[in-house]
Nucleic acid binder design. Structure first.
Ligand SMILES: NC(=O)c1ccc[n+]([C@@H]2O[C@H](COP(=O)([O-])OP(=O)(O)OC[C@H]3O[C@@H](n4cnc5c(N)ncnc54)[C@H](O)[C@@H]3O)[C@@H](O)[C@H]2O)c1
Ligand SMILES: NC(=O)c1ccc[n+]([C@@H]2O[C@H](COP(=O)([O-])OP(=O)(O)OC[C@H]3O[C@@H](n4cnc5c(N)ncnc54)[C@H](O)[C@@H]3O)[C@@H](O)[C@H]2O)c1
Lengths: 216, 216
DNA sequence: AAATGTTTGTTTGCCCGTTCACAAACAGCG
DNA sequence: CGCTGTTTGTGAACGGGCAAACAAACATTT
């Protein structure tokens, strides 16, 4: 059973999606049970860490046996709230935004970009089956059930866009523009900073004398 | 002066690009000196952390005065090896790959995608001024100076692609396909897992009762 | 030149996350 | 049913990074 809301560490939270993806794949392959050391080889995470992570959600496994795959799929699916579909909006239908719309997390039925917005009139219309509206009509198109936005706008536009999104009720934002923005207390922003990732990767790769590494 | 290669923590390394971007911007704005507490407001990193990070590269600042902006720009530029241009190759000219080529880190003159590869004959040619070659001709086009690759291929193709890249002398890889791959010891792989980022963002946003957060 | 005020670099303690290692719990089997 | 072998869940030790706080170092002012 799932534990009552205790305290799930941030590091663990970031690994849940990896676990979920792995056990889903196992289920599709017809594997019905899995041991922590075997799962470790698949996800490249130490088995001790896996067991500690899993135990923070309750007693999911059985000693001397392992974990029932369906138990894990159910548990993580519940945690990630897979069955209540997330209606995600996208702002900025440029190169990156278009790629995201075409892909649209198609492997994950719960994640769905349902509409997009742009200021450039040339971008309005339909892309990959998803409507693109004028950014000026943001408030008119949002429903109260929409909490989540992906941003692929230029850095310079970002503060104004975030401000408008917060006013429209969005409180979870994933953005590709690295400009730090002061946000409202209830808002969570995650930055994906591709340039920084590449630069720090190059730094570690150059600096490295010793052994190889997989960096997350 | 820059310290002899001591020990730079991984957490610090990930922040160098942020610092570099910030001080570059300050320089462009004509600001000639900056204090750690003022810089803190710009990059949203505590001033104590900033000073500790900076001090790991030597004594860059002056007490009772702050930091000379040009000193910082020089120091971080040297650290990130900004003046030796990195020739980066891209594999997988799909939606994401095309977006990366069009952008091509244009703000950073040192980062340059110089050629791309794909298996689909329809993708070959030139995109955004960058030649796209058949993936079968990878070895023929690479020069010994090329260490770095960005991957935007489907997860299923990834292991084979990484294997071929390693054989061709690539040892730093940034990839968007989340499938974990066992790599050679000298290779560094950084995964950008957009689906995981989004899912764990949703988890934290839902779980949150208290105050807002910026998550990196 | 001395006095004052400011800001750095670093020392210290703390917290979070990882890893080790083992007792307890269970499966499998005779 | 008892015995053996296996694997979990977790207490304990460890390590790394963060934040507070302060002495030393420098700028500035008188
Ligand atoms: N594509 C890359 O390789 C890459 C790499 C690093 C960082 N990024 C960052 O990702 C973001 C998007 O990149 P891109 O390549 O798609 O850029 P892009 O220029 O192709 O697209 C930006 C889009 O945002 C729209 N836009 C501008 N202001 C807007 C506003 N106020 N409201 C709504 N829409 C607005 C533009 O009309 C355009 O369609 C940028 O911040 C960029 O710095 C991209
Ligand atoms: N675009 C997104 O929103 C998004 C989101 C999450 C994850 N991803 C991941 O990023 C990666 C790329 O995404 P995309 O949307 O650009 O996919 P895409 O299907 O548009 O492009 C993939 C490209 O790789 C090429 N390719 C396939 N096998 C190859 C091989 N062996 N060697 C060289 N090239 C090969 C294909 O011809 C195609 O051009 C995928 O792994 C995807 O899972 C993308």
């Amino acid at each position: 059973m799932l534990k009552a809301r205790e305290q799930v560490s941030k590091a663990t939270i970031r690994r849940i999606p990896l676990y979920y993806r792995a056990v889903q794949q196992l289920q599709q392959q017809g594997v019905s049970r899995i041991r922590s050391d075997k799962l470790s080889e698949i996800v490249h995470i130490p088995s001790a860490t896996i067991r500690r992570d899993f135990s923070s959600f309750g007693e999911l496994g059985k000693s001397g046996y392992g974990y029932e795959v369906t138990t894990l799929v159910d548990a993580f699916g519940k945690l990630l709230d897979v069955h209540s579909k997330e209606a995600i909006i996208l702002v900025g239908v440029g190169g990156l935004g278009t790629a995201l719309m075409q892909n649209n997390f198609r492997r994950n039925p719960d994640l769905n970009i349902t509409m997009a917005f742009d200021t450039d009139p040339a971008k309005l219309g339909v892309v990959a089956g998803i409507p693109v509206y004028s950014f000026a009509t943001l408030a008119a198109h949002l429903t109260p059930a929409m909490h989540t936005a992906i941003l692929a706008v230029p850095s310079a536009s970002q503060p104004a866009v975030i401000h408008a999104l917060e006013a429209a009720g969005i409180d979870a934002i994933l953005t590709f523009a690295p400009k730090p923005v002061a946000c409202a207390p209830q808002t969570t922003i995650r930055y994906i900073d591709l340039t920084s990732e590449l630069q720090s990767l190059l730094f570690t790769a150059h600096q490295k004398v010793g052994h190889g590494a997989i960096v997350r």
